[in-house]
Amino acid sequence: MAFEILEPGLATTVQDRGRFGYYNVGIPQGGAMDGLSAEMANALAGNTPAEAVLECTYMGPRFRTDRDTVIAVTGAPVDVKVNGGTRGQWSRLELAAGDEVAFGILQGGTRFYIGVRGGIDVPVVLGSRSTYGLGSIGGFDGRPLRAGDLVPVGDSAGPSGGREPLQEIDPGLRPRFEKEVTVRVMPGLYDHRLTARGMETLLNSIWTLTPVADRTGLRYSGPEVEWQPRQQPFGAGSDPSNIVDAGYAVGSIQIPGGKEPIVLHRDAVSGGGYAMVATVISADMDLLARSAPGTKTRFTPVGMEEALAARAEQRSLRARLWGAGA
């Protein structure tokens, strides 16, 4: 079966949990930006956490299904329309062959997810179905969807392994899409390049997310931060924020020129010549992905123990979603 794309939306891509193991050769992990919302779409559609979903950014697609199926829409708040009638997010939606699905104007957040029974069945490339647009690999022909695409959907007899699919996501478990967020970071690896005052500016200011935000990274506006004076090392650029090229951690924060911090996200390059002054902890990467432009953001420092505890908490939340043993 397939979804026929009638209108593609702004940047609708196929994503799964990501493409791991190739970062060392410059291929980013990719995968759904808001991983938890994507996983919830799979849980509702009767899949495993590994199936590919559609990630819709700001403006969703309009599509038609050619078979009866089950879908679920999770993530940023948006009206879901089936044949013109409004349906809910965060719950199972049964579609009949020929049904047309469309979306209203986003009411907050940035990305929503469409899970479908059987998953989006594009070829697996380097272990993942995720679209890496900059590299033109994975997903549907390595690119965002276009009008006229026939997006293959997997066998609806499906991989759920006999597990009873969820009917809806408990409201208490749903992610929130807020206009003010606090994001936990660990200082480093290049925090020594900022002055004490520069670090204080980073950690005590309120940063506003600009519209310059995509799968690669998110740019924030706010005050200027102060760098340590230095002698330009051989191989580094002339700006004080430049370093001799190094590997970039996923979630690392750069501040080119001392203005407008950029947080690297799932499709970012794996290395380059900007100092990474702090790194967003893995548990808060989804939170960044949910932020709409204009979101007031604070970066608060945590240590390794707290970061690992937050990661464990995320894991246990996901385990509850899938029930014991899933």
Partner: peptide, 9 residues
């Protein structure tokens, strides 16, 4: 006429 998107107009 509404903007469906965030950004610069």
């Amino acid at each position: 006429i509404l903007s469906p998107l965030p950004g610069i107009f």
